[in-house]
Every structure is written in structure tokens, then in C-alpha cells.
Amino acid sequence: MTYTTRADFMSGLREALGRNNIPDARDILIDFDQHFDGGAAAGESEADVCAKLGDVDEIVKQYISETDGRFTEAQKETPVQETVITDNEPEKNMNTGDFAQTAKEASAPEIKNERSGPSAGGIVGVIFMDIFLFSWTLITLLSLIISLYAVTIAFAASGIAIFVGAIMIAAVGAAGFISTGFAPISLIFCGIMMCAFGGMLVIASIAATRGFINLIIAVINLNARRFTGHNVCRKIGRKYREERD
């Protein structure tokens, strides 16, 4: 099937890829979406780009012949429909970053068009979700993250305290006031271990905070898109991020 507009071509391609269970449909859609961007930047009309790209079914046939029937069962289980991130589930998108965002726009051009302007239904829907879903989810997550920080600090601080205590005991022992045996050495190891565990928790806390901030940004953007038609915040780490693989 041949098309004359970008939106028709992209939805035709998405549909054909899904119908044939082509793996990595998201990446494929990004390629074609960016091809249209390139054409637009070069001053080509959508109809010209479509004509030069050719028949969508031929393109999909070529994907099938290029992969040479190498589709695995695992790949078949994730058809294109699942890779399209819908507007109703921003949490899913929380840590996938730049590429998922691009994919979302690439694979759902008509959704993008729909959300280009505020609509009363959309605004009511998003307010409803803010009150009954996002607020509670975010508050719960925030309290969990605060607890995580508390545990992290507790581990790091007690590790340091045990370490310092052990050294003091060793110093007292060395001065000959009391007999300490091997206690200071085992305490020092215990302190180091707790500090190391605290260190790992620091990394986990940072990752959790980052994910949480991205989730908040996703919620803010979801609201912003409903009210103003476009995103207002960028996610952390979006710039120059390399592709997943």
C-alpha cells in the first residue's frame, strides 16, 4: 500500500509491522519517522518522501526476508502494539529515557496530533488521575525514598562509628591498659563492611531519586500536554544519551 501523507504512512507501517510480528518495530518506526524529518528539513513534501520510500508492504516484506525467518519465540511475544507507550501509563516510561520518548512520538504520530491542543475531556481526565492516582503513588514513593536515605545514613554512620571505636579500643589495648585480643580487628572489618553496604545503598538511593524525579517530570509533562499541548520539562540525562544497546 502506498500513502501520500506522513501520518498515514507511519500508521500503515506500524500496522503492517505489527501484523507480521516484526521484532524491534520501535526502532524501525524511528528510522522512518526520522527519514520524514530529514525530508522535511530538505524541503521535500510528505507525498514525495512517501513516493520515494515506496510500498509499505514491500518494505515489511524486505524486513522479513532480511531477517530470514530468524524471529525467535521471545521476539514474537513482544509485538509492536506493546512497544507503543500509551498516554495513560506514564510510569512505564519513567526510566526508559530519551529513546522511549522518541519512540513514543515516532510510533504514535496520530496520538501526537491528538494531544497537540488542550481538550476539556483530557484536562478532566488528567486532574482525576492527579488526585486519585499520581498524588498517592508519588507520596508513597517519596516516603519510601526518604526511608531508604535514612537506612543508608544509618549504615554509613554506624560503620564509621564502629571503625573509629575499634581503633580507639586498639589504641587503648596497645597502650597496655587492657587486654583486647582480636576484638579490634574483627570490629574494624565489621565497620568496613557496614560502610561498604552504606556505599551501595548510596548508589541505590541516587538511582531511586533519579527515577523518582523523572517520574515527577513525566507527570508534570502529562499535565502540561493536556493544558498547553507540549512538554515543559526535560528528563534527567536525556542529552547525548546513547541508544539502549
Binding site: 524491534d24 510500498d55 509499505v56 518494505i59 524486505q62 532480511e66 531477517t67 522518541t102 541508544e243
Partner: peptide, 21 residues
């Protein structure tokens, strides 16, 4: 033109080419 992308996907899957954003 549309037939170049399937070829590039095969090359990418085979590790001959690579992509970045």
C-alpha cells in the same frame, strides 16, 4: 528508498554497523 532501512537493520543486527542519537 524504503528498502535501505531493512538492509541497515540486518547490518546492525549482525554488528557491522551501530547507531547513536
Amino acid at each position: 528508498e524504503g528498502t535501505i532501512y531493512p538492509l541497515m537493520k540486518r547490518l546492525k543486527d549482525a554488528g557491522s554497523i551501530d547507531s547513536y542519537i
